[in-house]
């Protein structure tokens, strides 16, 4: 709003005097499920960043393409379909594969990825989820798996029943870190054990992945949440559970929220071990 409000005022912002550069976007496109894949390139003018305007990012460039959908060959194209929401890396929507690595498009700044004129940026949809169109994928499997592991605190309803359990600041900090998971799917995209599964019927037995395992830990760690602990650990013992983890630990490397996913996996692994030994000897 700065520059806009200013343009009616007296002073000029320093941002507007700086130059622009061209960034070439190579984008993997697909008109729908089962449709052929094609690559298109777009030249996008990018403003040199300043404190007054901030750096351009992949989103602002995709928005520019939407308004000017012409490829570098001069062919008329269509706006690139992509998913986005908050644009400040808290909603998880705009996750895609940029230059071969998964991340959020909003926090992908052109200053870092394409600092020079003519630099190229490659965009692809996530490969572990079915493509809906272009860069937009269907991540329902992730939410479906959260249902499977009962990722909630089973409260007795919204009645006025007083406060929840007290907890120490340290425990709160541990839970808080896990609670910042925005279900973006980066950890799943980077996981060699998590593979594309188009068939919804198979989701129930396909690998849950780090995001969900970490949520299991999050809810097992809450005093009321723990009332469903056994059920969650049963689920984690089944095909697709924690033992399908291959310990490549890519998840923790790519997590944009720096959630200690491998610690969650270790904790759930331990809980599952004890749970099953107990079950073996006591039957429940």
């Amino acid at each position: 709003m700065t520059a806009q409000q200013q343009s009616n005022g007296t002073t000029a912002t320093p941002a507007e005097s700086a130059g622009t550069r061209t960034v070439r976007f190579r984008i993997k496109r697909q008109d729908g499920p089962g449709k052929p894949v094609r690559w298109e390139t777009f030249n996008v003018p990018v403003q040199a960043s300043s404190a007054g305007s901030g750096s351009a990012n992949v989103i602002s460039c995709l928005q520019w393409i939407a308004a000017n959908p012409k490829t570098t060959e001069g062919k008329d194209s269509t706006p690139v379909v992509f998913d986005c929401g908050c644009l400040e890396e808290v909603c998880g929507a705009c996750t895609m594969v940029i230059n071969g690595k998964v991340r959020q498009a909003c926090s992908c700044l052109m200053d870092d990825y394409a600092p020079n004129d003519g630099d190229e940026v490659m965009l692809e949809p996530m490969s572990k989820f079915p493509v809906v169109r272009d860069l937009f994928v269907d991540r329902r499997r992730l939410f479906d798996t959260l249902k499977r592991v009962k990722a909630w605190v089973p409260i007795d309803g919204t009645y006025d029943l007083g406060a929840g359990p007290n907890e120490t600041p340290d425990d709160q900090q541990d839970r808080y870190r896990l609670s910042t998971c925005m279900s973006c799917g980066c950890c799943l995209e980077a996981c060699p054990q998590y593979t594309l599964e188009d068939d919804e019927a198979k989701w129930a037995t396909s690998f849950a992945g780090a995001a969900v395992i970490s949520q299991v830990q999050y809810f097992n760690d809450h005093r009321t949440g723990a009332t469903l602990k056994k059920k969650r650990l049963d689920e984690m013992s089944k095909p697709g559970g924690v033992s399908d983890c291959g310990n490549a630990q890519n998840c923790v490397q790519v997590c944009p929220k720096e959630i200690p996913l491998t610690e969650s996996i270790g904790k759930v692994g331990r809980a599952v071990t004890f749970h099953n030994i107990r079950k073996f000897f006591s039957g429940s």
Partner: peptide, 8 residues
């Protein structure tokens, strides 16, 4: 904070 696509 101003940005090219939104204000954060």
């Amino acid at each position: 904070i101003p940005g090219a696509d939104k204000l954060r």
